[in-house]
């Protein structure tokens, strides 16, 4: 099999991932499309490693690392999405407008913060 097939496949997978990141409103689905992009990279790495017959097998080593990193990211990502859901009761990514660049800061955040600050 010529090396170009898997590379093209990887590129396509990557593009699908990019589309997923840009088009989906739900944060979790965005996370999943990022995973897709990372796996596209893994495919690419393994393909090149085989194609180059690299004695050091550095391509596969990096693939393992990327898998580990992807796992860590998903864990953290979901924790943060959970946090956002608890504060905003919605994880629609494009509705997070509180940190926009305006002169006056938006409505003062939930009472819990105000009380905690006052207690200082």
């Amino acid at each position: 099999m010529h090396v170009v097939y898997p590379v093209v496949l990887a590129a396509l997978l990557f593009s699908v991932g990019v589309y997923g990141v840009l088009a989906r409103r739900n944060a979790i689905l965005v996370l999943m499309s990022v995973e897709l992009m990372l796996n596209a990279v893994n495919l690419n790495l393994v393909t090149f490693d085989a194609w180059l017959k690299d004695t050091l097998a550095s391509g596969q080593a990096l693939t393992l690392f990327v898998i580990a990193i992807a796992a860590a990211e998903v864990g953290l990502g979901l924790a943060i999405v959970l946090l956002v859901f608890r504060n905003r009761s919605s994880i629609a990514v494009d509705q997070l407008r509180d940190l926009a660049d305006r002169d006056a800061p938006s409505a003062v955040p939930g009472e819990t913060v105000a009380e905690r600050e006052a207690a200082r």
Partner: peptide
């Protein structure tokens, strides 16, 4: 944790960072 804007910031940074890492890894490959 109790400040909505902090979670929002975290999510924003997370998404942008992860995407740019993915692109970078693609470059590395």
């Amino acid at each position: 944790r109790y400040d909505g804007r902090s979670a929002e910031a975290g999510l924003t940074m997370f998404l942008v960072s992860v995407t740019s890492t993915a692109v970078m890894l693609f470059g590395v490959s």
